[in-house]
Nucleic acid binder design. Sequence first.
DNA 1: CCTACCGATCGGTAGG
DNA 2: CCTACCGATCGGTAGG
Lengths: 220, 220
Amino acid sequence: MASPATRAVRSDGIRSREAILRAAASFASMHGLEELSLGELAAEVGISKSGLYAHFGSKEDLQLATIATATAIFEEVVLVPARRVPPGRDGLVALSDAFCEHIRDRVFPGGCFFDTVAADLVAHPGPVRDAVTDFLRGWRALIREHIRVAAERGELAPGEDLEQLEFDLIAYLSLAHALFRIDGDERVIDRAERAVRQRLGVSLDTAPGTPKRRVAVRRH
Amino acid sequence: MASPATRAVRSDGIRSREAILRAAASFASMHGLEELSLGELAAEVGISKSGLYAHFGSKEDLQLATIATATAIFEEVVLVPARRVPPGRDGLVALSDAFCEHIRDRVFPGGCFFDTVAADLVAHPGPVRDAVTDFLRGWRALIREHIRVAAERGELAPGEDLEQLEFDLIAYLSLAHALFRIDGDERVIDRAERAVRQRLGVSLDTAPGTPKRRVAVRRH
DNA sequence: CCTACCGATCGGTAGG
DNA sequence: CCTACCGATCGGTAGG
């Protein structure tokens, strides 16, 4: 009952919980959160199915925790790096590049975790779906905010329809995810990066203020 | 054993088969072809589960037949009407409008049948997935062919990257499907129609050669 | 974390 | 088209 032993046990528990959630996030990025089976997941991480219930009270608990894990990963590999570039037109390009790179690097094996699970959850209302749509709403709001700043700074074409621009940019990034998922062809990701630049009137070679950073490839 | 009796029985069988397939196509446009459950489907059309096996030898048979039905519906409500406009830039606008209208009209309650089931099937290789990706390849090839003709006729901006144009147009239409599915907000469909026109340099009011036709709303 | 179990549902079959 | 069933798997629980 010494403190170190207790800490070791708890540490193992946390490690195990994290291993489960990383596996769940990977699986869900391929198959969706609805198709996530507790039996399959348990087998993959090497514990019994009811062992999962030591960590999560229900499938819904696990789904929500998986979304939190995926959010943290997305934050780390997309949002934080992109924040090195100030908001506005260059910020949009940086965000687009970081997003595209996280798909190319297969941070989640199924492409964009949130696009995959959103499609899966449309027909299943509830707190899990709400958590996912909340994230996607935030993602779109971030892009909208960049556009607002870009317009304020006169970085956009005069008379640009801001809502239309938002739609177009999200369309390019979403299709990069969808086609890469189906074909596994990296060229569609290049297409998306180019589409964003072209739509913003940014040079196709190297975007100013967007140093070509190669984020450390981290498989989760 | 008279010929009329035989014909009547067969006719009922065909009617029933068609009713099953229409229900299956509707269900799959919401939930995907993988989540399609034979028990649920049977209950919805009012027969027993094993009654389905009188019409289809296996779930895969049913899935393939459902794809064929959805293809026929898509052909009828999107491709045929769009063919009234000659290929090229105007043909692209007509195709885009017809596609958008079939989403707006909820011909399939889940939006674009093929986009939904493709997302569902990515993780399930086999003949069913192949049939869906074949359809989508054909859809993209049709758009590509329109673009080729438009370029040939000098209807596009000089130096236009045709592959990039194809990517962009498909991105707009796919996002119309995805966002309408999630939000049910018709404005995203308007956004897609506008994005296509803008990208093609066509007037946003009324596209020349594209009479605003309201296709008869047919619920399948 | 485990074994052992629950009722429900899955795709599919036997036999009519 | 039906009833009656099959083995497998689902999410979840009891009890340790």
